[in-house]
Amino acid sequence: MAQLRRDYENFVKLDTEILVAGPENAEAFRKYWEKENLPFIGLPDPGHRVLKLYGQEVKLFKLGRLPAQMIIDKSGKVRFVHYGHSMMDIPENRELLDLLETQLTK
């Protein structure tokens, strides 16, 4: 999250909004967002509705305790998916920004 926070402005420049979903409730989100001063849109999803949807409909994700990440372009298509194998297994911002810059700016 700190990594994304640092590069948030670069994502914004590339017309990209960041949504963070998680199982905590709204109060836990609010506290964390205030403490860390996060600019992202925080989406409490205690029932893992979105993960389940993506697991079932497009088989991108399964439930579990590992992080996952995807980028959806302006036409609504999935263009990048990362499914973590550990808590530390997250893609580099540079990789994400390169994709946005070279392929998804139009």
């Binding site: 949504l19 963070v20 979903a21 998680g22 979105v50 996952a68 995807m70 980028i71 959806i72």
Partner: peptide
């Protein structure tokens, strides 16, 4: 574009 991050 939208980046969705799933924290667990």
């Amino acid at each position: 574009n939208v980046m969705v991050v799933f924290n667990r």
